[in-house]
Design a protein around this nucleic acid. Structure first.
Length: 420
RNA sequence: GCCUGAGUAGUGUAGCUUGGUAACAUAUGGGACUGUGGAUCCUUUGUGGCGGGUUCAAAUCCCGCCUCGGGCCCCA
């Protein structure tokens, strides 16, 4: 016996069936929004990822040298590969460019529920668009994908990094001080933020107001707070439009403004969002994304980009937690030859019916009783019993496995009978 | 990488405190019932995560490791 590597999983056919179902629902939704699927390699040059996220990530990814001494890495995410592909091959495509993808990703993390070393991401990139309606469509698509796969209990939060910066600016906080605060804000440790602001000699009332704005869900209050900053005016107007589109055009009611959303790395700009499943505990984030700037640092020409990624495995776990009823795989027909002499004719009938139906046949020469039991176990909808008595009348017996009712059907009329 | 809990046939469980024949259900393969029995009955297969220690004797006690959970770090 060999053990499966830590943090990886096998998927049995019943698990695959659920996964494929969800994957296809996601795919369908992407396509309905005009997105087209792309695929990139599972491994890339290590540099692609260090360029994007810094040398620090080497500790958290699977990297190796190939036989030619090249530094390579299993992809830890898909935005960088897709951007590489865009710069390689797609820069001259008509804009906007709407790309989506599915792919296994690899991270050297401590596994937990909803967190694996090999995991699957679904996601998309929107290239060439920076209008409010573009961002609103992107966010609502993320929300609707999760809704369409059957999730009931999800929460959408929207933030904006430019607004957060403007708030820092208003308090005259240095880069260093911001860098100290950002992780605390990200983790919603507002008590600690308050303590830090006190250390930074910020007036307690001003600090309290700052926290209030970070935690409020009231957009008017936020825009009021930074209204003197004229450089941010357009950002605020645009965000306001995005929220308006979400509410009135896309009919999404339950979202929160959450200025404290930071998202990991530096390349996010402006609007950011995340969707979480409150039922999931520590690893509850299902979807995250926003506007980002990556193309110039990869050597392409400046174009607005945004996108999001969905944690596919977490979405499945969330569905299971909500006790979503996945449909059971069914077999249309199971054929039972009564004895060895009937095998020939039975195979022939199976072959004919397979043109239009999912058909299985007893290959173990078992008796009727055991075969019926097997047919029941594999969820066959009907069984066809083929024996001498029937064949003499050019017929077979068709048994409905749900009702137990049987009928004798002429072989020439069998296909029509089963398809009706 | 850190703290913490848990690992018993394919699956679900009992036994562990107080060391003494590994048990039950279900599943799997075969058979009986002369072609309706999706049943019933008989039978077969298969188990202590791995390694070491204590002991006459370890599923049980001790140590290390592995894996899976809960919580951190991180979360692109």
């Amino acid at each position: 016996m060999y053990q499966i590597p830590r943090g990886t999983r096998d998927f049995t056919s019943s698990e695959m069936q659920k996964r494929l179902l969800v994957e296809n629902k996601i795919r369908t939704t992407f396509k309905k929004f005009g997105y087209n699927e792309v695929q990139t390699p599972v491994f890339e040059t290590l540099e692609l990822f260090t360029a994007k996220s810094g040398e620090g990530i080497i500790n958290e990814i699977y990297s190796f040298q190939d036989k030619g001494g090249r530094d390579l890495a299993l992809r830890p995410e898909l935005t960088a590969p897709v951007m590489r592909m865009y710069i390689d091959r797609l820069q001259m495509e008509p804009k906007p460019l709407k790309l989506f993808y599915f792919g296994n990703c690899y991270r050297y993390d401590r596994p937990q529920k909803g967190r694996y070393r090999e995991f699957k991401q679904a996601g998309c990139e929107l290239i060439g668009v920076d209008t409010p309606e573009g961002y609103a469509e992107l966010i609502s698509m993320g929300y609707k994908i999760l809704e369409n796969i059957g999730l009931k209990n999800i929460q959408l939060n929207i933030g904006n990094l430019n607004i957060l910066s403007a708030m820092f600016k208003k308090l005259n906080l240095s880069e260093d001080k911001q860098k100290y605060l950002v992780p605390l804000i990200d983790k919603s440790m507002f008590e600690d933020v308050l303590v830090a602001l006190k250390d930074f000699k910020i007036n307690p009332n001003v600090a309290a107001e700052f926290i209030d704005i970070l935690t409020t869900n009231d957009f008017k209050k936020i825009s009021e707070y930074i209204k003197e900053d004229t450089t941010i005016k357009e950002e605020i107007n645009n965000l306001n439009k995005v929220l308006d589109f979400l509410k009135n055009s896309f009919k999404i009611k339950n979202f929160n403004i959450k200025i404290s959303i930071v998202r990991g790395l530096d390349y996010y700009k402006g609007i950011v969002f995340e969707i979480e499943a409150p039922t999931l505990g520590a690893e509850k984030q299902l979807c995250g994304g926003g506007a980002y700037e990556l193309i110039p640092s990869f050597g392409g020409s400046q174009t607005p980009t945004s996108g999001f990624a969905i944690g596919f495995d977490r979405a499945i776990i969330a569905l299971e937690t909500e006790e979503y009823k996945f449909p059971v795989e069914k077999l249309d027909i199971f054929i039972i030859p009564v004895n060895e002499d009937m095998v020939n004719k039975s195979l022939e009938i199976a072959e004919t019916l397979r043109k239009n139906l999912k058909v299985d046949i007893d290959l173990m020469r078992r008796g009727i009783s055991k075969s019926l039991k097997y047919a029941s176990a594999i969820n066959a909808q009907k069984t066809i019993i083929i024996g001498l008595k029937e064949l003499e009348e050019k017929s077979v017996t068709v048994r409905d496995m749900n009702t137990g009712k049987q009928e004798k059907i002429l072989i020439e009329k069998l296909e029509g009978y089963l398809l009706k």
